[in-house]
């Protein structure tokens, strides 16, 4: 089970234009944890996430997924272990039909025939999108696209789920559905989000990034009670922890 662990050590990334996106970031996420990485716009959240499956190469520092260090040689294995769900499902759903899109990863893993059918059906059923299997992705609503995007990753049986802004652009009902769905997953989960109420619902642990560095790492409820810290990192308490806008009571 050790491959469910992510260990980031002194990670730094400098973009070609000289912008230091993340510097000296270290943390360890263990099996089954659900962790939120939050921060203001430009704090380095998405850049950090892209390092976790080798989409971006670190300027310095190390990443270990379980016992494996992330290198060019270990990339294929790590990409199977770390399932990444992108912020914009249109970037993730590129095949002509939902079925083919979900089958894309398993086919690359070498599965075929009835194994593909079983694995795609299971993944689609898990996100409640079995009825969409024959549809082209551009005929789906935002919420449906998000579910299918998650199915494309689940079909590869990852041990770790990494999701960039999972609830962005969803209506309240689709958001609630997605939160319920994610709560049921037993994977190690890492989210970036500005939806702090979702973070409060799903994540026991929160890491705050500010200008590329880790400003806080601890239990979500403790972090969200620290108004000084939140304010310094250009964040606010989740709505559910703020007072009533009419009477002011919490």
């Amino acid at each position: 089970m050790s491959h469910h662990i992510i260990e980031v050590t002194k990670l730094q990334h400098v973009y070609p234009d000289g912008t230091i996106a993340i510097k000296d970031v270290s943390f360890r996420i263990t099996h089954g944890e659900s962790v939120a990485i939050i921060g203001a716009n430009g704090a380095g959240k998405s850049t950090l996430l892209q390092h976790l499956n080798g989409s971006l190469n670190a300027t310095s520092g190390q990443i270990r997924i379980g016992d494996t260090q992330l290198t060019q040689g270990t990339l294929p294995n790590i990409r199977r272990t770390v399932g990444m769900v992108f912020q914009y499902p249109d970037d993730q759903l590129f095949m002509p039909t939902v079925f083919e899109d979900v089958a894309f990863g398993p086919l690359n893993l070498g599965l075929s025939g009835s194994e593909i059918e079983r694995c795609v059906t299971e993944a689609l059923e898990r996100v409640g999108a079995e009825h969409l299997r024959a549809k082209p992705p551009y005929h789906l609503s935002g919420g449906e696209k998000k579910r299918v995007a998650i199915a494309t990753v689940l079909a590869m049986s990852p041990d770790i789920l990494v999701m960039d802004e999972p609830t962005s652009g969803l209506d309240p009902f689709a958001r609630r559905q997605l939160i319920s769905l994610l709560r049921d997953f037993k994977h190690t989960k890492i989210f970036t989000s500005h939806d702090l109420d979702m973070v409060l619902d799903l994540c026991q642990r929160t890491i705050i990034l500010h200008e590329g560095t880790v400003m806080a790492d601890g239990p979500t409820s403790d972090i969200f009670r620290n108004e000084t810290l939140l304010s310094a990192c250009r964040l606010e308490k989740p709505f559910s922890m703020q007072g009533c806008p009419v009477c002011g009571r919490t």
């Binding site: 892209q50 499956n53 989409s55 294929p76 990409r79 199977r80 399932g83 990444m84 992108f86 914009y88 249109d90 970037d91 993730q92 590129f94 079925f99 083919e100 089958a103 894309f104 990863g105 086919l107 690359n108 893993l109 593909i116 494309t152 990753v153 590869m156």
Partner: peptide, 22 residues
């Protein structure tokens, strides 16, 4: 930029240059 993001998404799902059609 979108093409780059799509390519990243493909790599993340084990793409090695060959599209396996069903």
């Amino acid at each position: 930029l979108r093409a780059e993001r799509i390519h990243t998404a493909m790599l993340a799902r084990g793409f090695t240059g060959q599209i396996h059609a069903l």
